[in-house]
Simulated assay, not measured.
Amino acid sequence: MNTNKVKELVHYLDQFPQCSIAVSGGIDSMLLAYIAHQHSTTKVKMVHAYSPAVPVSALERVKAHTKQYGWDMLVIDAKEFDDKNYINNPVNRCYYCKSNLYIRIGEHTQGAIFSGTNMDDLGDVRPGLAAAVEQNVQHPYVEVGINKQQIYAIAKFYNLSQLHSLPGQPCLASRVETGIKIKSDDMLFIDHMEEKVRELLPSFKKIRCRISHQGIFIELDQLPEASISEKLSEQLRHFCAEQNRIFSGLKVYQKGSAFLNGITHG
Rank of each mutant, 00 (worst) to 15 (best):
M1T: 07
M1F: 12
N4T: 14
N4A: 14
N4P: 12
V6D: 04
V6R: 04
V6A: 01
H11Y: 13
D14M: 09
D14T: 15
A22F: 10
V23T: 12
I27D: 01
S29C: 06
L32C: 12
Q38N: 13
H39P: 04
T41D: 03
K43V: 08
K45E: 14
M46W: 00
H48E: 08
Y50M: 10
S51Q: 09
P52Q: 02
A53G: 07
V54N: 15
P55F: 01
V56Q: 12
S57D: 11
A58D: 14
K63Q: 14
H65A: 06
H65W: 08
H65N: 08
T66C: 09
Q68N: 13
Y69A: 10
G70N: 07
W71S: 02
D72E: 12
D72T: 03
I76D: 14
K79C: 04
F81A: 05
D82M: 12
D83T: 01
Y86Q: 02
I87N: 11
I87K: 04
N88D: 14
N89D: 11
N92E: 10
Y96H: 13
Y96P: 09
K98M: 02
N100L: 05
N100Q: 12
Y102L: 01
E107M: 11
H108S: 13
Q110R: 03
G111S: 13
G111H: 07
G116P: 03
N118E: 11
N118H: 10
M119K: 10
D124H: 14
R126Q: 06
P127Y: 00
G128A: 07
L129R: 07
A131Y: 05
V137E: 00
Q138H: 12
H139V: 01
P140Y: 11
I146R: 02
N147C: 08
K148L: 00
I151E: 06
I151C: 07
A155Q: 01
K156G: 06
F157H: 10
Y158K: 02
P167F: 05
G168F: 06
G168E: 11
P170G: 09
A173G: 01
R175N: 04
R175P: 15
E177W: 00
T178D: 01
T178H: 01
T178F: 03
G179A: 09
M187F: 10
M187D: 04
I190Y: 11
M193I: 05
E194M: 03
E194V: 00
E195N: 07
K196W: 00
K196G: 00
V197I: 06
V197T: 06
V197D: 06
E199F: 12
L200Q: 15
L201W: 02
L201A: 10
C209H: 05
R210N: 14
G215V: 12
G215D: 08
F217N: 09
I218H: 08
E219P: 12
L220D: 15
D221P: 15
Q222S: 14
L223K: 09
L223C: 09
P224C: 02
E225M: 13
K231V: 00
K231N: 00
S233K: 03
Q235N: 04
R237H: 09
F239D: 06
F239K: 09
C240E: 07
C240M: 10
Q243K: 15
S248K: 07
L250R: 13
Q254F: 11
Q254V: 13
Q254A: 08
N261Q: 15
N261S: 13
H265D: 03
